[in-house]
Design a protein around this nucleic acid. Sequence first.
DNA 1: CACCTACTTTCTACATTGTAGAAACCAGGA
DNA 2: TCCTGGTTTCTACAATGTAGAAAGTAGGTG
Lengths: 114, 114
Amino acid sequence: MGVNKDLPGGFEQLVMLAVARIGDGAYGMTVRRSLEERTGRNVSLGAVYSTLDRLETKGYVTSKHETGAAERGGRARRFFRLTASGLRALNEGIAALDRMRAGVASVPRPARAT
Amino acid sequence: MGVNKDLPGGFEQLVMLAVARIGDGAYGMTVRRSLEERTGRNVSLGAVYSTLDRLETKGYVTSKHETGAAERGGRARRFFRLTASGLRALNEGIAALDRMRAGVASVPRPARAT
DNA sequence: CACCTACTTTCTACATTGTAGAAACCAGGA
DNA sequence: TCCTGGTTTCTACAATGTAGAAAGTAGGTG
């Protein structure tokens, strides 16, 4: 890898953004849903989970299994949160992209706040 | 791949942006330089060229060898340009990222124009 | 009880992308 | 001739992207 290791690439960025935007209720399904809604592409759960796993190995997210009785059918959910270093890496990656795109006429400026 | 095939990932985006921003004089070395200046990371020429090659196979850039006598030491340069479909794909990818990041408090809005 | 179903994660496998470094090319000057 | 600077191409491997099948878990239902 490059000299600045581990700047997250495309999909990883998107997944981290999903986790960030969802906040507390971020687990596999909600991350997937968020991704699909905002990007318009359909993403498989497998894709989401393995990315999340890899992010966890890098220390960019942490996960915790739902405690107590999940009075809900199904396996205990695994909730994800962005770590400080994850946020840092995410912002660096985004910043680099922004610097790259600044002033390129054919590439639109980002929309204003939402 | 996903349903919307071939949205370029991280590094491909950066390389396309470099080509776009450089305009006419875009070839291996200038692309590399632009990347390094704006992102701060050091990128190898190999990385640049193979990415450029792959982008070309996808039809996102075209290349043309320097015509006439290159009255310069060295092999004839290969100049790259973004194709219309490359630009479209690039903008789609960026737009998806923007939608994902819009309204996420911990992720700064992009800087104003440069 | 045995089974079915909904929800969710985990595992497996493979394709694509990211990345570096060595090799080869080319021309001009020492 | 040899060296050097500028440039591309080739080779190889690691990391990321992506899908799909499998399996765990609980609650309902006959």
